[in-house]
C-alpha cells in the first residue's frame, strides 16, 4: 500500500502565546515547534498499517524552516520518505490554500490512503483534511478512534456527541486521527540514525502546477485582521471553613450568584 501522512509543525502546546508586532499573528521568537499532537496518531497509524500490509509511508508537511527537523522525526518514527512543501508564496494560515496545495501534492503521489490529525493544534480550524478529500474527490472519515483497513475498503469509528459512528467506505480515502486511535511510539536511537539517510525532498507549490493566484493571499478564503489575547481573568474569592461549610457556601453562591442551580 502507498500510505501518505500529512503533518503540521505547531508551537509546543504549553507555549505562552504573544502577539507579534503586526497585530495579526503570533510572535515566533523562542517558540519551539513540534509535530501537532493529533498528527502523531496519524503517523503512528500510517506506520502500523504499513507494518501490517506492506508498502511505504510518505510524510508531507507544508511550512517554513521548522519543518525539516520534524520530518526527520517522522522518518525516525517509521515514515520511508518525506516531502517538505516550502511555505513561500502560500497563504499558510488559510485552510483553503493549504488544502489545495496538499491535494495537488497528494494527487501526484496517488496514495491508497491519507492520514491527517483531526486538527492542527493552534490554528484549530479542523478543515484541511476535509478540503483535501473534497479537492481529490475522495471520501473522508474525521475524528477517527478506531480503524480497520481491508481489501480496498475501510471501517472506521468516529467520535460524535455522546457516542460513536461506524463508517464504511472504499479506498482511496482521507482519515482524520483522534487521540485514542493508537499509542504513538518513541523512535529508537537506531531509527533516528537511519532516518538521516532516508530521502527528504523540498518542493514548491509551482512543482504541483499551482499558481500564486490559487494558493497565495489572493486565493485565500479568509483574512485574519486582528489577533488579541483574551482579557485576563481575575481571581475571585476564597471560601473558608470546614468541608461542610465550604460546600454550603459554594452551593449558596451557585444558586444566588451563578444562578445555574
Amino acid at each position: 500500500m502507498k500510505i501518505a501522512v500529512c503533518i503540521k509543525a505547531v508551537p509546543e502546546t504549553d507555549t505562552r502565546i504573544r502577539i507579534a508586532a503586526d497585530g495579526r499573528s503570533i510572535d515566533r521568537t523562542d517558540v519551539k515547534f513540534i509535530i501537532s499532537p493529533y498528527d502523531e496518531f496519524a503517523l503512528e497509524e500510517a506506520v502500523r498499517l504499513k507494518e501490517a500490509k506492506g508498502g511505504q509511508v510518505i510524510a508531507l508537511s507544508l511550512g517554513g524552516d521548522e519543518v525539516p527537523n520534524l520530518l526527520r522525526e517522522a522518518l525516525a518514527r517509521g515514515a520511508d520518505e518525506a516531502v517538505h512543501i516550502a511555505a513561500a508564496g502560500i497563504a499558510i494560515d488559510d485552510p483553503l490554500c493549504v488544502g489545495k496545495t496538499l491535494a495537488a501534492a497528494l494527487k501526484g503521489l496517488t496514495p491508497d490512503i491519507v492520514f491527517f490529525g483531526k486538527h492542527g493544534v493552534g490554528g484549530d480550524n479542523q478543515q484541511v483534511h476535509a478540503i483535501v478529500a473534497e479537492k481529490l474527490g475522495w471520501p473522508q472519515v474525521t475524528v477517527v478512534t478506531k480503524l480497520e483497513v481491508g481489501d480496498g475498503r475501510l471501517r472506521a469509528e468516529r467520535e460524535i456527541e455522546g457516542g460513536v459512528e461506524v463508517v464504511e467506505t472504499g479506498l482511496p480515502a482521507v482519515v482524520g486521527a483522534q487521540k485514542g486511535l493508537n499509542e504513538p511510539r518513541y523512535p529508537k536511537l537506531q531509527s533516528i540514525m537511519q532516518a538521516k539517510k532516508k530521502p527528504l525532498a523540498t518542493k514548491t507549490f509551482a512543482d504541483f502546477g499551482l499558481t500564486a493566484a490559487e494558493v497565495g493571499p489572493e486565493g485565500a478564503g479568509l483574512a485574519v485582521t486582528a489577533l488579541r489575547l483574551p482579557p485576563p481573568r481575575q481571581a475571585g474569592r476564597r471560601i473558608a471553613g470546614d468541608p461542610g461549610q465550604q460546600a454550603a457556601e459554594l452551593l449558596s453562591a451557585l444558586q444566588n450568584e451563578v444562578k445555574v442551580i
Binding site: I19, I26, G123, G221, A223, T225, L227, L229
Partner: peptide, 13 residues
C-alpha cells in the same frame, strides 16, 4: 485559536 490562548478576528474574502 491556540485553544483559546488568543482570539482572531476574521474577515471573509
Amino acid at each position: 485559536v491556540y485553544a483559546g490562548k488568543a482570539f482572531a478576528t476574521v474577515a471573509f474574502q
